[in-house]
Nucleic acid binder design. Structure first.
Lengths: 229, 229
DNA sequence: CAATAACTGTCGTCCAGCAAACATAATTAA
DNA sequence: TTAATTATGTTTGCTGGACGACAGTTATTG
């Protein structure tokens, strides 16, 4: 299970020394976003960083022809919008509330002050950025190396680790995902995902009630893609 | 031309205040690697960060079946090995000298001291990591969206910007790349790259002398993939 | 509770690009 | 200078999965 260590959020805020934590809370602002509202878009000036309190944020991009590519979802205790702030660059991705979501945001000046107060924070942030680089590397590798079956199996396992709830050996995903969303996460089409999901269902790897997915046979699903842990 | 802003290295060392720069030089060690020697491999403990003085470092991975995936090349003034050091994680990629290469390395403790001396450095490093995240995002997008023709055209343009030398409107790449290497950079097979390169040659986009590539018609090559700048 | 919108299930059709297999350069080593 | 290695050119299947099209099903919402 340690293979996907980087999926578990690094909870910076709670690991912070008291002084910095209260500085962060003091300088940050709370905001609630309705489902489907866009927090930022490519071309926006990247001046704020965000911290998810609850809900879920989709980080994605749209191609010229309107196809959506989902890079990842940010869950509670995750930061997002970090990458562009340090250089004062423009956003290159969309951030959108996948469901009603509350965030804290802090502006660049305060963020930089926070860093200069405590280099420890800088190291934490670098750790987050580093782990995202690794994640994207893995995505690239999978896109090049693996077929849709494998990518989907991997996705299900990751989702299980991020938002899975384990009962009697089966893992139920606490969030709902449409086939279209899953397709956008692994770079496939909706129809193909539907087909493969049904295949997995028939093989007994998973079960679906509506769009609630349950992983029945984690071991075989994992074995399918060459996991051993 | 600004589209690929992030390709130009951020030259941290020279932007550093004098005190930190000399601290860096004082604490860092020079080392020369022969062509094809491996600096680190997946599973190694990530304890050092590196700065390229001259030469070229290939950052890549090998799949189970031995296929190579090149994430990028690090050129003079680039850092590499950053991502894993902050969390004290293991390496997940290979770093190998693509030609004879000299680097400076500094260990984690000194790196952390450097950061605590000057938060400005932390921001620089975050900027580097941020720009790499964007690069990998673009790679993911291209893999999902674009066919091999487009990916190869894009690669040639990027290579032109990174190591191209412009004369009379044509851009000659100063480094040599084999078709296999190019294939590994865009997630294609060698044969396909050979075919498409010949197509580009016949169309007059490029010229090849041995493995020295010249971009004859940047505009049309760029136009091919929908550039306008 | 309609009705409207958003998902899911299932088909053919088609083609980009991979895999395998050679032949022929062009380097590098010895 | 020759042998050995490594890179390039080309061709012939074959197939994963995209695309398009539609019917059935489940959610939303006025």
């Amino acid at each position: 299970m340690e293979k996907h260590w980087y999926l578990s959020a690094i909870d910076i805020i709670n690991e912070l020394p008291e002084g910095e934590r209260s500085f962060f809370y003091q300088k940050s602002h709370r905001k609630k976003y309705a489902k489907s509202s866009v927090i930022f878009s490519p071309g926006d000036h990247g001046n704020l960083i965000y911290y998810v309190l609850n809900g879920r944020i989709k980080i994605y991009n749209l191609s010229e022809c309107g196809k959506e590519i989902i890079y990842w979802f940010c869950h509670p205790k995750d930061f997002f919008g970090l990458a562009e702030v340090c250089g004062g660059e423009m956003r290159t991705v969309f951030a959108e509330a996948a469901e009603e979501t509350e965030v804290l945001w802090i502006n660049r000046a305060n963020f930089e002050e926070l860093i200069s107060r405590s280099p420890k924070i800088a190291l934490f942030i670098m750790r987050i950025l580093g782990s995202r680089i690794r994640q994207t590397h893995e995505t690239i590798k999978d896109l090049i190396m693996c077929d849709v079956h494998t990518r989907l199996a991997q996705l299900l396992i990751k989702l299980g680790q991020i938002c899975g709830c384990s009962h009697d050996g089966v893992i139920t995903l606490e969030k709902k995902f449409t086939h279209q969303e899953m397709a956008n996460m692994i770079g496939a089409t909706r129809t193909t995902v539907t087909e493969v999901m049904n295949e997995f269902r028939k093989t007994g790897f998973i079960k679906c009630d509506g769009s609630r997915i349950t992983i029945l046979d984690y071991a075989r699903l994992a074995g399918f893609i060459g996991f051993s842990d």
